[in-house]
Design a binder for these strands. Sequence first.
RNA 1: GGGCGAUUAGCUCAGUGGUAGAGCGCUUCCUUCACACGGAAGAGGCCACAGGUUCGAUACCUGUAUCGCCCA
Length: 914
Amino acid sequence: MTTRQLDKTYDPKAVEDRWSGEWINRGYFRADEKNHPGQPYCIVIPPPNVTGSLHVGHALNHSLQDILIRWRRMQGRNTLWLPGTDHAGIATQNVVEKQLMAEGLSRESLGRERFVERVWQWKATSGNTIVNQQKQLGESCDWDRLRFTMDEGLSKAVIEVFVRLYEDGLIYRGERLINWCPRCLTALSDIEVEHEEVKGKLYHLRYPLADDPNTGLIVATTRPETMLGDTAVAVHPDDPRYRHLIGKNVRLPLTTREIPIVGDRILVDLEFGTGAVKITPAHDFNDYEAGERHGLSRLAVLDHAALLDAAGMQQAGVESSVVEMLRGLPVSKARPKVDTLLREQGILEKTEDHKMAVGKCYRCKTVVEPYLSPQWFVKIQPLADPAMKAVEEGRIRIIPEGWVNNYLGWMRDIKDWCISRQIWWGHQIPAWYCLACNSRQIVTTDGRTTILQGAVPIISRLTPSGCPTCHGQQLLRDPDVLDTWFSSALWPFTTLGWPDQTPELKTYYPTATLVTGLDILFFWVARMIMMGLKFMGEVPFKDVYIHALVRDAEGQKMSKSKGNVIDPLHVMDQFGTDALRFTLASMASPGRDIKLAEERIEGYRNFANKIWNAARFALMYLDGPRTALPLAQRTLPDRWILSRLVHTIRTVTVELESYRFDRAATALYQFIWHEYCDWYLELIKPVLQTPEHPDGASTRHTLVETLETTMRLLHPFMPFISEEIWQTIPHQGDSIVVQNYPDVDQAWAAPDAEQLFALLEQTVGLVRTSRVLLNYSPGQQIPFHVGHDDLDRQSQLHQLQRHLAHLSRGTADVSPPQDWPAARLLRLVTEGLSVGIAVADDVDLKKAIERLAKQITETDKELQRVDGKLKNAEFVSKAPPDVIAEHQERVRTLSRDRALLDNSEQQLRTMLRS
RNA sequence: GGGCGAUUAGCUCAGUGGUAGAGCGCUUCCUUCACACGGAAGAGGCCACAGGUUCGAUACCUGUAUCGCCCA
C-alpha cells in the first residue's frame, strides 16, 4: 500500500473542488425509489428564491439538512434530499422590472407575453446561481430531481389543486378589503405585511351634530385624510358621554354628507382617544368589519396607487373645491392639506403624538394600503382545523416544542387567504369569463381591465372552448396569478409527481423532516400541512425542525443596506466549507439566534487543521504490520480511546436524533481534539516511535481503526476533510459517503481503562503544574515522586508508571509520600494524590509557595462548606444517604489534602529562609 | 396591548436540585521530529434582581428590571 504524503496545512479549496463534483458524478446522492431496501428518509428543501444567491441563512438551513441526510444515508436509510427553487412571484418580477427600467423599458411597454418570456430568459441565465453554490457547499441533494415551482409538472399540479378546491367550495372570489402594495400594484396576504412602529399623530376632529351644529362629537383618528370616506361615527353603547347620541347623525366636514352615529362595543375602546371613532370601511380593516356589522356603505377615496381619487371623492360627496385641491395627491402630500383645511374650519381640535403601527410590503417595504377590490380567496377554516389537529395529536412534531403554541394560536385566528396577485410572473389563475355573459362586470378604464365582483368565472383545467351558458366564443382569462406560497404549499407532494401516483410519492411521502426557519412557519409550513392533509390525506412530514435566525456578531439582522452581511461563499473561500458548516452546526442551539462572528469560523478552521495533522501523524507511523488483537489484550491507551470513541458515537447519535446539532458538534470537537489528539496520540508515541515495539502492530491497528471510525462519525458535519483523510488512510470501499455510520459497539466500553486514565490525567496535571511552578523548561527531564493515600490507587500508579514518565518528561518514582526525601521537595496534593518534585538550588520558591497558599485557602473554604452541611441536622436527617456519604468522604479527603499541603508549604518556607 | 424567549467568565454561548463548563480573547512559558491554524500552565464568575418551595436553588415557582422576537 502506498501512503500519500499530506501537506502540513490543510488546504480546503483543492479538496472541496475535487470532491463536490466527484460525489455527484458517481451518483452517490441519487435516490432509488424502487429497489432500495432501507426505510425511506426524505427531506424536501425549502426552495430558495430563483432570484437569489446563497446567503448565510441558506448555509445554516442547508448544512443542517445535509447533516441529517448524510447521517441517515450512512445509516442505510433510503434517503432522498429533494432540491428545487421557487419562482418567487413578486420578488422575481421586481428584479426583472428593475432591469427593464435600466434599459428604458417597462413591463407594460413589453406586454404580458413578452415580459413573461423575458423572465424565463432571465431565469435560464441567472437561475442556476444558487444551485451551483449549493453544490459547492457539498449539499448531497439528488440533483437529477431538481424542481422549479413553475416547471410543467408543478404547474399542472397547481391548476389541479385550484380546480379541486374550487369544486369543493374552498376557493371563492369576492370583493373584500385586502392589503395592497401601491408600488407592486398587487394584493398581498395578511402575513405578507410587516408591521413597524412609527411616530404619528392622533388628530381630534369635531364633527357637528346634524340637527344641532353647535354641539358636536370629537373623534380621534391617526389618518385624517380618510375622513372623506367616513360613513359613520362609532361610540361605545355603554358610554354615558355619548350613548344618547346613538341614532343621530353628524355632518361630515368637507363633504355634503351626513353620517350616522352607531354604537359598537368591538370597535370602540372606552379608554382610547376621545371614546368616539370615525368609521371608514374602505380604508381600514377594523372599520371594514364594523361597516359589515352596521350595514354601512364603503366609499373609497384612494385609488390603486394610493393617490387621492377624484372620482371616488366625488362619489363620496366631497366638496368640489376639496376634490380639486387633493386629486391625484399621495397620502403624504394630502394629509398636510387636509390638516390645514380642518384647522381653518375649526374642525381640528388638537393633535397629540402617538405611536402607531404601519404595514409595509414584505418585498419592497412600501407602506401598504387597505384596498377594496375583488380578489380570490381560500376559505381556510376547513383546511386549518385538520392541520391543527395533526399537531395537537402529535402526528407532526414541532421542534423545539415552544413553537407549537405559536402555530396553534395563529391557526386558531386564521383569516381567509387572499391568493390572487395582480402581477404577471406566476401561475395564472385558471378562470375565464364570457364577455357576453359578463358584459357589465368587465370594465376597462385607462387601459386597465377590471373584473368586478359578481362576474361568473369558468373554472377549468384546460382553456375552455366556449361559454357553457351562451356558447359564446369570446372569453377573457383572469389576468391574476396565484400567490407564490400557493405553489410552495404543495411542494412536498408535487415535487414527487402528484397528481400522478408515482413510485416516488408512494415511497417518500410523507417526508421525514422539514428543516426551516421560524420566519416561514406561517407562510409555508402551516400551508403545507393544510394542503398535504387535504390532497394526500396524510401529513407532509413528521418532524418540523425550526432553527434560529443568523445574525451578525452584534446581533443585528443581516441586510445588504446595513452592510453587515456575511457572505458564505467568501467565508468558505477563506476558511473552508467544512469550517463554516461545523460552525453553523455547533451554534444551532434551539431557541436562540445565532450571532455569527468570523473568529468562531476561524476556530473551526483550526479544528480542521488539527484533524488534518492528526491524520498526517498517523500516516507517518503506519509502516509495519497491523494486527487486530482481542480488546482485552490491547494496551491501556488503545482500550481507553476505544471506550471514549464509543461514548462519542453514542452521544453524537443520540443528539442527532433529537436535533441537537450543537451538542453533537461539541462532542466531536471535544473527542477529536482533547481526547484523541491531546492524549491518545501522545500516549502512543513511544510505541510508534520504537522500531519493533511489541505493542506496535496492535497499536497501529487501533490507530487506524479509531481514525477511520472517527472520520465516518465526523463525515456528516465535515464531509470534505473526512472524505479526503478517509481516502488516504487504509479503508475499504469507494467513498466515505456510502459507508456505514459508526454503530455503538458496547464491547469497546472499558470503564476500568477510563478510571485508570483519569488517574493518569490527574497525576500528569500535577506534575506539569509543579514543573511550571519551579520553572523547569518543558524539555528538561526531571525525576519526580508520585503516591496515593488509597492503596488501590497506589498500585494503579505503578501500572501507569511508563505513561507518567513519558507524558511528564522525567522519571517517575512511585512510592508512599512518607518515604520521600523530606528536604528540597515541592509536594502538591489533590484528592489523596501526591506529587513531589525536587527543588533545584537556584529556583525562586515564591511562586510555588503562593500557589500552595492559594490551594490551602481554597481547600479550607470547601472544607468548611461541606463540613457545615454535615453539621446541619436537617441535612443529615433528610438528604439521601449516598449524598451524605459522598460529603463525608469529601471531608476526609479534603482534610488529608489540607494537612499534606500545610506540611509542604512549611517545608518550602523553611527552604526559603535557609 | 397579548404571547414567547433570553439574562451564566472580557466576548459568544452550553449546562445541571448536591464540587461552575466550553470556544474565542487575556497572562506566563515553549519553535520538542503531526499541527504555532500548535503545546503546557494559569488568571477570570454573588449564574440579572427580590421573594418563595427545599435539608440544599444558578437550575423549580412567583414577581421585578433590561433586552429580543412573534402577533395585534
